[in-house]
């Protein structure tokens, strides 16, 4: 009995220590990526390729999901608002929920599962097939040549994707609310403009998406670089990227929201 308890406690302790160790490695890795970012900025073509990989290839999923999320918001928002007779606030509701929360968060989650997992798999596969070692032996630093461009590609793509998501969502809300159901077009836009503040809402939303972009890209490149160099290790790292990034996005979203809109 006592044995079981001590065994249990030891297991918890070991996991915690392991988690903290990994966090430390990840932090050191992050600093290394930043310190070795010179190449990816000087030879911007490397980063351009990764923007294509992380951003352009995520366009379809982001645009389509944004449209549908906005359409649902338009439908649900209208149903709710019409009961209290304030359906002219539909534009505000759709715009604020997208710009402040749904845009960055949902776009971040989609980005993590579409681009983040792909980045992890790509780097992990390069590690498993010794491509990273080969590069290192050719006196080319794989962090500078492979990891940093992917990191920056992700960081630069994410805010643009989140903005596209929000814009498409507002358009979707407009389609359902105004075109389909027939809420007043004038008040949809004018109330939205009157209530959505550039600094308070839009800038904060953009800041959120930048933070999520850094977090997801960091997790993705770290998991890829740190994975066990086997097929199984790569697949496990890919799963971990999606899980960890999603949790990080939701946790960070709470922290950022309370910092931005709390007081």
């Amino acid at each position: 009995m006592l044995d079981a308890v001590s065994c249990f406690l030891r297991a918890i302790g070991a996991r915690l220590i392991n988690a903290i160790l990994r966090l430390g490695f990840a932090a050191r890795f992050f600093c290394m990526v930043l310190a070795l970012s010179g190449t990816s900025l000087k030879r911007f073509r490397l980063t351009l390729r990764e923007i294509h990989f992380a951003g352009v290839l995520s366009l379809v999923i982001i645009v389509v999901s944004g449209l549908f999320v906005g359409m649902v918001l338009g439908l649900q928002g209208y149903e709710t608002l019409v009961r209290s007779g304030s359906e002219e606030a539909l534009g505000v509701l759709v715009a604020l929920s997208l710009v402040r929360e749904l845009g960055p968060v949902v776009a971040g989650l989609l980005f993590a599962s579409r681009a983040g997992s792909a980045i992890t798999a790509e780097i992990g596969l390069m590690k498993a097939t010794e491509q990273l070692d080969a590069m290192d032996m050719m006196a080319v630093n794989p962090i500078a040549r492979v990891v940093a461009p992917r990191f920056w590609g992700g960081v630069l793509s994410m805010p643009l994707l989140a903005a596209l998501f929000s814009a498409m969502g507002i358009f979707g809300g407009y389609l359902v609310g105004v075109v389909l159901i027939g809420a007043d077009e004038g008040s949809f836009w004018s109330q939205m403009q009157a209530s959505v503040d550039f600094q308070e809402d839009i800038l904060n939303g953009v800041i959120k998406s930048v933070v999520f972009g850094v977090a997801v890209s960091w997790i993705a490149v770290f998991e890829g670089y740190d994975c066990e160099p086997t097929a199984e290790g790569v697949s496990r790292a890919t799963t971990r990227t999606v899980v960890t990034s999603s949790l990080a996005i939701l946790g960070l979203d709470f922290v950022l929201t309370s910092l931005m809109f709390g007081s």
């Binding site: 010794e130 070692d133 050719m138 006196a139 080319v140 040549r145």
Partner: peptide
């Protein structure tokens, strides 16, 4: 020096030409 890895470790996202050109372009 130069190392040849067990299964070649060619860069999978580049053509054969770009693989061979890689060290020259980098260095």
């Amino acid at each position: 020096m130069s190392m040849l890895f067990q299964f070649g470790a060619l860069f999978t996202d580049m053509s054969v030409f770009d693989n061979v050109a890689f060290p020259m372009r980098e260095h």
